[in-house]
């Protein structure tokens, strides 16, 4: 059987990749996708810890993931709507060219 650290390693890799995508890609949608990736890495962690934890009967980890999925869905919806609104306003989807987020 696989060990917990394998899952953790995979999740860490996924998380770092998601972070890199968020930081590196210039398309706004890809930034959002990077964030989704990080969220799913966290979800994987939850499930792995649940499964390898001392009391898998309790299902708490799973419920966490369920809620996190709902939040992620909401976040995706709002994020995409924002991207649409930004595009409508500036005609760009390029976070590089949007530098108004300051005082």
């Amino acid at each position: 059987m696989d060990s917990l650290s394998d899952y953790l390693l995979l999740s860490a890799l996924l998380f770092s990749l998601g972070l890199c995508v968020t930081l590196v890609r210039r398309h706004a949608i890809l930034v959002l996708i990077g964030i989704e990736l990080m969220l799913n890495a966290a979800n994987l962690n939850f499930i792995a810890f649940w499964r390898f934890g001392p009391n898998p009967e309790a299902l708490d980890g799973l419920l966490f993931v369920l809620f996190s999925l709902a939040v992620a869905a909401a976040e995706a919806a709002v994020g995409l709507a924002l991207i649409l609104a930004v595009y409508r306003r500036y005609s760009v989807t390029d976070v590089e060219n949007i530098d108004e987020l300051k005082g």
Binding site: S16, V24, R26, H27
Partner: peptide, 16 residues
């Protein structure tokens, strides 16, 4: 245009 933004090296370092 390149698909990567300007500060990508720094982003890679942070992620790394």
């Amino acid at each position: 245009v390149s698909p990567y933004s300007r500060g990508s090296i720094a982003g890679l370092i942070v992620g790394g």
